[in-house]
C-alpha cells in the first residue's frame, strides 16, 4: 500500500467514523452491546452463578450476540450508499475499491473494538474486588472476539453489497451468519452415523463459532487464525467482485 492509498483509506475511514459518531447508530450499538449481554451474563448464569473469575460464559454467547449486532451495524454499508446514490459519488472519486472497503471495514471494526473495550470493567473490577482473572486467557478472548468480529463484518459487508434495501440486507446477513454460527453447535447436538462422521468434522471446521472456542479457552491456535483471516479475505474479495460487476450490469 503506497502513501496515496493510505491517505485515501484514511479519508474514507474518517468519513465513516464521523458517520458513526455524529449519528445515533454507533452509540446505540455500543450501549445495547453493553446492556444486553451483561444482563444475560450477570442474571442468567455466568460469572456469579459459576462463582468463577472467568469471562468464558460471556464469550460463549458472543457469536450469537454478533449475529444480531454486526448486521445492525453494517447493513447500511453498501445498501445505504446505493439507496442514496452516494455510491456513484464514491466510485467516481479517484479511489480504488479496496481502499473504500478497507476504510469502511476498519471504521466498523473500530466501533466493535470500542464496544469490547467498554466491557472491560467487568473483568477488571471483578479482578480487583472479587477474584483474580487469568489475564492471559482474557487477552486471548479479546483478540479472538475482535478477529471473529472482522469475519462477521466481512460476511455482512458482502451481503450488504448485494442489495439496495436496508432491511433485506439486515435479514439476509442475520440468516447467513446464524447459519454459519449454528452449524457448529449442530454438529454437537445432532447424532451422526459413524459413516457420516466426516460431515460433522466439516461442519465444525466451517462454523464461525467453533473456531472461537480456543480463543475463549485462552489458546490462540494457528488454524483459528487462518480460518478467521481467510474467511475475511475471501468475503472481501467477493465483495470487491460484486462491486466491480456492477459496472458491467
Amino acid at each position: 500500500m503506497d502513501k496515496r492509498s493510505f491517505f485515501n483509506t484514511l479519508a474514507v475511514y474518517k468519513k465513516e467514523i464521523q458517520n458513526y459518531f455524529y449519528s445515533p447508530i454507533g452509540y446505540v450499538f455500543i450501549v445495547l452491546f453493553l446492556f444486553i449481554p451483561n444482563i444475560l451474563f450477570f442474571f442468567f448464569g455466568g460469572i456469579f452463578k459459576e462463582n468463577n473469575a472467568t469471562m468464558r460464559m460471556y464469550f460463549a454467547m458472543l457469536p450469537i450476540i454478533y449475529i444480531i449486532f454486526i448486521p445492525g451495524l453494517t447493513m447500511g454499508t453498501w445498501s445505504k450508499e446505493k439507496n442514496d446514490g452516494t455510491l456513484e459519488l464514491l466510485f467516481t472519486l479517484p479511489l480504488n475499491r479496496y481502499e473504500i472497503l478497507i476504510g469502511k471495514f476498519l471504521s466498523t471494526l473500530t466501533i466493535v473494538f470500542i464496544a469490547l473495550i467498554a466491557t472491560l470493567p467487568i473483568p477488571l473490577i471483578t479482578h480487583f474486588l472479587l477474584g483474580s482473572f487469568d489475564i492471559g486467557q482474557l487477552i486471548s478472548q479479546y483478540i479472538g472476539a475482535l478477529l471473529m468480529a472482522s469475519c462477521y463484518i466481512a460476511i455482512s459487508f458482502f451481503i450488504s453489497s448485494l442489495t439496495k434495501e436496508l432491511i433485506v440486507s439486515f435479514l439476509l446477513s442475520t440468516s447467513i451468519l446464524a447459519l454459519f454460527t449454528f452449524i457448529g453447535y449442530l454438529a454437537y447436538s445432532v447424532k451422526f452415523f459413524t459413516q457420516l462422521e466426516w460431515i460433522k468434522g466439516i461442519l465444525t471446521e466451517i462454523s464461525l463459532s467453533t473456531h472461537f472456542l480456543n480463543f475463549s479457552k485462552g489458546v490462540i491456535d494457528s488454524i483459528d487464525l487462518v480460518y478467521y483471516i481467510g474467511m475475511s479475505i475471501l468475503f472481501f474479495y467477493l465483495n470487491i467482485r460484486v462491486l466491480e460487476s456492477k459496472r458491467w450490469s
Binding site: 491517505f7 484514511l10 474518517k14 455524529y22 442514496d84 452516494t86 472519486l93
Partner: peptide, 22 residues
C-alpha cells in the same frame, strides 16, 4: 440529483472531498 452525504455539514463534506482528491 447531486447525491451527497446528508449527515455531513457543508464544510465537512468539502473537507472529505479535498482529502480524497489528494
Amino acid at each position: 440529483h447531486t447525491p451527497q452525504y446528508g449527515d455531513m455539514t457543508t464544510i465537512e463534506y468539502l473537507n472529505f472531498i479535498s482529502e480524497v482528491r489528494g
